[in-house]
Design a protein around this nucleic acid. Structure first.
Lengths: 113, 113
DNA sequence: ATAACGTACAACCATATGGTTGTAGATACC
DNA sequence: GGTATCTACAACCATATGGTTGTACGTTAT
């Protein structure tokens, strides 16, 4: 079950930065050129361009060339992948609660006897 | 809306490592001492202890002392926090699809006239 | 043709990260 | 008491990360 860790690593790593999360929100609302994105943040164009590369490698965004611009667009599948990963933990949690409940039930039965 | 970025950073950062994700799965199944956890991985006790600290700072796990052992337990609220964050992106995505659909509908109406 | 714009990428820097070994303090065992 | 176990933490190292500036190249505008 240690499949896909590379991808999962990259997705969570990409999401672990506030600037990248903000870029992602913007490009899920609609595609935007890299320089337009750069104009929103108090850092150099190169820094923003690097953030886009990180998002791209995590497959959270895609780019398409239009003239001299590179338009960045959010990709929903990677988000879904991340949510699926997290839901595994929720499932574990619920199963744990169920087991706890069983133990509780058994101990109550024990008392009644 | 730039609230809570520190916490979100820490949660995603903590999840961006396969060893930490595995530790998290184990301690959501049931609490475990740090040295027991360490026995599962091909690295030093100190390395695993550091991973636990990272999970702890992200509030993905809690510790409680029992004798000389420190028992680590998964915390569901941080996972839920992370899922909530990700669902924001899903919502953006759906809204984007709705807008796209509206544009499409309008262009179809336009043609009919 | 030349200037301006948008992008990519290299080189560099400071700091963070993930690992190591070693040391020291509590607690449990004999 | 003495020894083994569990944990925490410091010091260290190599590499990754997030930022910078500078350069090069293709595209658009004058």
């Amino acid at each position: 079950m240690v499949v896909d860790t590379e991808r999962t690593d990259r997705v969570f790593r990409a999401l672990a930065d506030a600037t990248r999360r903000d870029i992602l929100l913007r490009v899920m609302r609609g595609e935007s050129s890299v320089s337009t994105l750069a104009s929103y943040y108090p850092m150099s164009f190169a820094a923003v361009q690097k953030h886009v590369v990180v998002l791209e490698r995590a497959r959270l965004v895609t780019k398409r060339k239009q003239g001299r611009e590179q338009l960045v667009l959010g990709e929903s599948s990677a988000i879904e992948h991340a949510i699926e990963q997290l839901e595994r933990y929720e499932i574990e949690w619920r199963e744990r609660l169920v087991r706890f409940d069983e133990v509780l039930q058994n101990s109550l039965k024990g008392r009644k006897q």
